[in-house]
């Protein structure tokens, strides 16, 4: 609904995916995978409620649609967010601390080794970033900082990252996500004709 969807769409197109913006339920129905972008989690959550997208989103994600939340998007997906009475979607078994590194002057970049990304570490951009404080039993950690704090993880077809791969030239993680969408389509349809389509969530 709000955030850096344009950067995600550029990255998805770089890796050959068909990317569209999603703002309505009809647009959501038309995609095979979803990215919930960086932005302000409070704003995105309010707009998801205002435009009746919470329930349709939950339904699609629970039905197995590959979904990736970056930064604010990770907060939207989490089941537990300290300070929020009702976590927005609550579909992923993680606890996410908002603004875990401090204010904007504490934002930074770091090199990260990420599960499923070959060819060396990725440059990760953390902007007023959250941290995944706890990951449930079914959650696999994809990347952590040197001090052990989790900054990328997956549970089934749901991914959450604290950082913004869409702000760099490195689209390897987007490539891996597109591969996940293709694999999921292959299982569901059992026919290779399905087109990989996807979207940077919502504006």
């Amino acid at each position: 609904m709000q955030g850096d969807f344009r950067e995600h769409i550029d990255c998805l197109r770089t890796v050959g995916a068909d990317a569209v913006e999603v703002r309505t339920e009809a647009e959501l129905d038309a995609v095979d995978g979803l990215i919930i972008p960086g932005g302000e989690s409070t704003t995105i959550a309010r707009l998801l409620i205002a435009f009746d997208l919470m329930e349709p989103l939950r339904r699609r994600i629970r039905a197995g649609m590959p979904t990736w939340g970056t930064c604010a998007g990770a907060i939207i997906l989490a089941r537990r967010v300290p300070g929020l009475d009702r976590p927005p979607l609550g579909v992923m078994d993680i606890t996410v601390d908002r603004n875990a590194f401090g204010r904007q002057v504490d934002s930074f970049e770091a090199d990260l080794d990420i599960e499923g990304v070959t060819g060396g570490p990725m440059r990760a951009v953390f902007i007023r970033a959250p941290v995944i404080r706890e990951a449930g039993a079914g959650v696999t950690v994809m990347a952590a900082l040197a001090d052990g704090r989790i900054v990328a993880c997956r549970e089934g077809n749901i991914w959450a990252t604290s950082f913004h791969p869409e702000l760099t030239d490195d689209a390897r993680l987007h490539g891996a996500f597109v591969a996940l969408v293709q694999a999921t389509l292959g299982e569901a349809v059992a026919a290779p004709s399905a087109r990989p389509r996807r979207s940077a969530a919502a504006r």
């Binding site: 609904m1 709000q2 955030g3 850096d4 969807f5 344009r6 950067e7 960086g38 932005g39 302000e40 704003t43 930064c71 604010a72 590194f101 904007q104 002057v105 504490d106 934002s107 930074f108 970049e109 770091a110 090199d111 990260l112 080794d113 570490p121 951009v125 953390f126 902007i127 007023r128 900082l145 040197a146 001090d147 704090r149 913004h164 702000l167 760099t168 504006r203």
Partner: peptide, 25 residues
Amino acid sequence: HGHGVGNTAATWTVKAGLAQMLKGG
């Protein structure tokens, strides 16, 4: 290159990046 915390703070990417997060808002 130690994969640690706070490697480079306040880079251009980080500063202009916050504005990217405000878009559509």
